[in-house]
């Protein structure tokens, strides 16, 4: 009986496993293969990649941009999620609905919308000139700052939803428990609420980070000339039919993402330990 049930449940896993292998593992392995066989075994693509400052510079810029975007998202989403989680149930649904609305619009349209808002003759400049704060339009569009703004706006809902769901699982009695055991309000937040919600924040930040690593439309539309992402390079090389080199860039991007995620997780763990165990001052 028991063994029977076990067999049935492994059967149920098969479709998911098949999907994973067919649509994730095999393509990834194929990209890995394409990066080192062109057509014979070669390391030339990686030699070229690591031999040139350009690609490493762009890799570093991509990582840095993604880190900053996920950090900003995390910092903004935290109090927003906290605010939502403290509302009564019905209001929570309403606020989450508001958070979700932008997700219905395509990234391209939202990026263009930011061009309209931030442009020389855009909304903000028009208001500032109209109110006499400035007589020359301020350059906001086509700057790295604009990339941050647009990407944060695009990715923030994902962070809020992840963060909120982690917070909503926290038993608020734990805060009372901390208080009665001797914690001042901020100590209860720091040692109990923060470490418990950090997990969701970090998960959200990692999702945002990974999505950012693959972004290219938004930086290309609202960014400056230096806002080139790894994905832009991949797109260029694919269009040039340089599959091998494109594959090599993809592999490097993948590895860089995995390593970064690993580091983020470790840092978060250390931070949590600090928050929990640190001095009570």
């Amino acid at each position: 009986m028991n063994t029977n049930r076990k067999i049935t449940s492994t059967w149920l896993l098969w479709p998911a496993l098949f999907m994973l292998v067919a649509f994730f593992l095999i393509p990834t392995l194929d990209i890995l293969r394409a990066s080192v066989y062109d057509p014979e075994f070669t390391t030339k693509h990686f030699v070229k990649l690591f031999g040139s400052n350009v690609y490493l510079e762009i890799l570093w810029r991509t990582i840095r941009l993604s880190l900053i975007v996920s950090l900003i998202c995390a910092v903004i989403a935290y109090p927003v999620s906290y605010f939502i989680v403290l509302r009564p149930r019905k209001q929570q649904i309403f606020f989450l609905f508001l958070v979700f609305i932008p997700l219905w619009m395509s990234v391209l349209i939202r990026s263009y919308a930011w061009m309209v808002v931030l442009g020389r003759e855009g909304l903000i400049n028009a208001i500032m000139i109209g109110l006499g704060f400035t007589d020359q339009p301020v350059k906001m569009l086509f700057t790295t700052g604009a990339v941050y703004i647009a990407m944060v706006q695009i990715l923030l809902p994902i962070q809020i939803v992840t963060c909120y769901s982690a917070m909503s699982e926290i038993d608020f009695d734990l805060m009372r428990a901390a208080r009665i055991l001797g914690a001042k309000p901020w100590q209860a937040i720091r040692r109990v609420f923060l470490p418990l919600s950090l997990d969701g924040t970090v998960t959200g930040a990692i999702i945002v980070f990974m999505l950012s690593m693959g972004f290219f439309i938004t930086p290309a539309l609202v960014g400056g000339r230096k806002d080139i992402m790894m994905a832009n390079l991949i797109e260029f090389q694919v269009n040039q039919l340089n599959w091998g080199f494109a594959a090599a860039i993809s592999i490097v991007l993948l590895i860089a993402t995995v390593i970064s995620v690993f580091i983020i997780k470790r840092l978060a763990k250390t931070l949590t330990r600090r928050l929990v165990g640190g001095g009570s001052a």
Partner: peptide
């Protein structure tokens, strides 16, 4: 405030800190 009352409390659902 609660933290200065020196009172022990056992909650219905234990309220153990899950991260410790």
């Amino acid at each position: 405030p609660p933290e200065r009352r020196n009172i022990g409390m056992v909650f219905q659902n234990y309220s153990l800190f899950p991260h410790m």
